[in-house]
Amino acid sequence: MQQIFNFIFKNSNRILFLLLLSISFFLTIQAHSYHKSKIISSANILSGGVYEKINNVSEYLNLKTQNDALAIENARLKSILFATTDSISITKLEKTKETQPYDIVVSKVIHNSYNVHENYLTLNSGKLQGVKSDMGVINNLGLVGVIDNTSPRYSTVVSILNVKSQINAKIKKSNHFGSLIWNGKSTGFVQLIDVPRLASVRKGDTIVTGGQSVIFPENINIGTIEKIYIDNKTNYYTLDIKLFNDMTNLGHVYILKSRYRDELNNLEKVKKNE
């Protein structure tokens, strides 16, 4: 017994080191393997608050570009509004809005990262605004990411510039599906993999989100095809896609809340159980 205690006292630093190391390894591996259940994320009062303060200052530096972007979006929305010539089509517009099962929460990016392999954004809206994990995030130009962790006032987003992110997307022209991933190389480009060889792809074609998930509605812009490869192992197309969005400069974003999400999830659960 005495010897055990002596051993512990003698090697107390080494034991402490191993203990703390195993804790940090656990946190690392946990963050790598399952998302949404991360213990440590920047969606908390401390870091969220600090980032919000920093953002309050740095926001002024790119007010001009943000204003331009908003003005362009306004012009686009106005043109849709004025293009409807008679009252019938306006009611039609409202009707489609009624069947459109998405609510939109406006939010602001208070912290943006794009220089590591797993990039996350922090937004200044959380559970109090009804934000939950696995909701889609877009902005006026296109896709941004998917909500990961939430706290009462803040939430983190898995950016599309994250090697773990995988989003269903399709070629706008031909409806051929693929999965959107990022190879971790350039902030302006993502990859669409597993596109069947039957699809006719051409450089410059537009890529939009596919309708196979509840996270995003169909036909949200992502980018245009820049390069086309054929994967040697799988014999599918791999496409380099130039993003419409400048992921290094994000301001206001929209969080999409699907109204039928729970219903659909429950249905799929039942299907799986059978």
């Binding site: 080191f17 804790i23 940090s24 946990q30 440590i40 920047s42 908390n44 870091s47 600090v50 590591v116």
Partner: peptide
């Protein structure tokens, strides 16, 4: 020092959403 560097790394991890990466490196 061990405790302090663990805390230092953990705080960095909280702010950069990186799990326990900074904590591991600082501890080492």
């Amino acid at each position: 020092l061990l405790f302090a560097s663990f805390l230092l790394g953990l705080t960095m991890d909280i702010f950069s959403n990186s799990g326990g990466v900074h904590a591991t490196a600082c501890l080492t």
